[in-house]
């Protein structure tokens, strides 16, 4: 059976679900950020798969452009997210999300 868009979309769905499970179920804030990166990669796979298989034998590049923008935002998000985690670690000596309850009332 030759490869089609379904293969890539199902792979993307599996990867997204693994990332979602990790992002919801982990206690370490860095692990949550890693799982969010997995989810963003899954979305990128779906984008590139659509741009490859929408027209047969032609690669449409709009999906690639979107993937590049997602990568840009993911890099910015990782830098700011890790800076926030390090700032929280400095003040509270912990990166456990269940202990981050400063804004809870």
């Amino acid at each position: 059976m030759s490869l089609g868009i379904e293969h890539y979309l199902i792979l993307s769905a599996v990867l997204f679900s693994i990332g979602l499970y990790g992002a919801l179920a982990k206690r370490n804030a860095v692990a949550i950020l890693m799982c969010i990166e997995i989810m963003l990669n899954a979305v990128n796979i779906a984008m590139v798969a659509f741009s490859r298989y929408l027209v047969p034998d032609v690669v449409m590049l709009t999906g690639h452009v979107f993937a590049i923008f997602i990568m840009t935002v993911a890099a910015a998000e990782a830098a700011v997210g890790l800076a926030i985690i390090i700032a929280i670690y400095r003040s509270r000596q912990s990166v456990d999300v269940e202990e981050m309850d400063l804004m809870k009332w």
Binding site: S17, I18, L20, Y21, L24, A25, K26, R27, N28, A31, D96, V97, E98
Partner: peptide, 16 residues
């Protein structure tokens, strides 16, 4: 501490 799961492990697995 390592990298443990929080108490939402079951519901999160079900949802995912």
């Amino acid at each position: 501490r390592g990298n443990p799961f929080n108490r939402l492990n079951g519901p999160a697995l079900l949802l995912a």
